[in-house]
């Protein structure tokens, strides 16, 4: 995979295109078919919510478009470049340049403060925000020098979001970002994600079990049995503060 040129997000042009995307874990009788030929196009800059039951293939899909795993068959195009055949070094470079990750359990470095956790990423990025600006975007300008152990779950998740967006990623991938949080805290996190999506224009994929979150998305993708069962676009997006669970 050749390095992808930094192009400003153009609305409507696909960020990801997959064709016949297939993933099989294991082999022989123990083989598990996680993805069964997924075809989908995801335009630049959208907020996409991915829904599905456990084992529906949504996490596998996220892992492949995030460059953590490679497909068994089929193609993934990121801005027109095929990344199906990329080696691990090219995938590392892809993640470093283009992808911001937000995890369910935050995965902050406990030995680094909020500012330092963000700096961890800005130090290896090409055109990053300052850690302070990134933390201000998620409303944590008062908590710069706190360690993870000194912060609430919601705060930790917002540091994780700041860490993910500080590199100004092309894609923001969030796997159950509110899964470990209560409803009120979860909504603050979603607000932070929305702000980032609006301000930076990063294509945002948000995996969740929680169907009520779907209403804040531009596009909702529903996975079942290793394939996309339904894609729908929201004409009327809700604000995070207007939803609850």
């Amino acid at each position: 995979m050749k390095p992808v040129e930094e192009s400003p997000a153009a609305q409507g042009r696909p960020c990801f295109v997959t064709r016949g995307l297939t993933k099989v874990y294991g082999s022989g009788p123990a083989a598990v078919q996680a993805l069964r030929g997924v075809d989908i196009e995801l335009p630049e800059g959208e907020m996409v919510v991915v829904l599905g039951a456990s084992g529906s293939g949504k996490s596998t899909f996220l892992n492949i478009v995030g460059g953590l795993d490679t497909a068994t068959a089929g193609q993934v195009l990121f801005r027109g470049q095929d990344m199906s055949r990329a080696n691990h070094r090219e995938l590392t470079r892809y993640r470093r340049r283009h992808v911001g990750f937000v995890f369910q359990f935050y995965n902050l470095m406990p030995s680094l403060t909020a500012r330092e956790n963000v700096a961890l990423v800005t130090e290896i990025a090409e055109n990053p925000l300052t850690p302070e600006d990134a933390l201000a975007l998620v409303g944590l300008e008062q908590r710069l020098d706190h360690f993870p152990a000194q912060m609430s779950g919601g705060e930790q998740q917002r540091v994780a979001i700041a860490r993910a967006i500080a590199k100004q990623p092309s894609v923001l991938l969030c796997d159950e970002p509110t899964g470990a949080l209560d409803s009120a805290t979860g909504i603050r996190v979603l607000e932070a994600l929305k702000t980032v999506n609006d301000d930076l224009g990063a294509t945002t994929l948000l995996i969740t079990h929680n169907a009520s979150i779907a209403s804040i998305a531009d596009r909702v993708v529903i996975f079942a049995d290793g394939n996309v069962r339904e894609v729908r676009t929201n004409t009327q997006k809700k604000q995070p503060k207007d939803i609850s669970w």
Partner: peptide
């Protein structure tokens, strides 16, 4: 921690 760093592009 180390796996997270790999995901973050290290």
């Amino acid at each position: 921690e180390l796996a997270s760093l790999r995901v973050l592009g290290f």
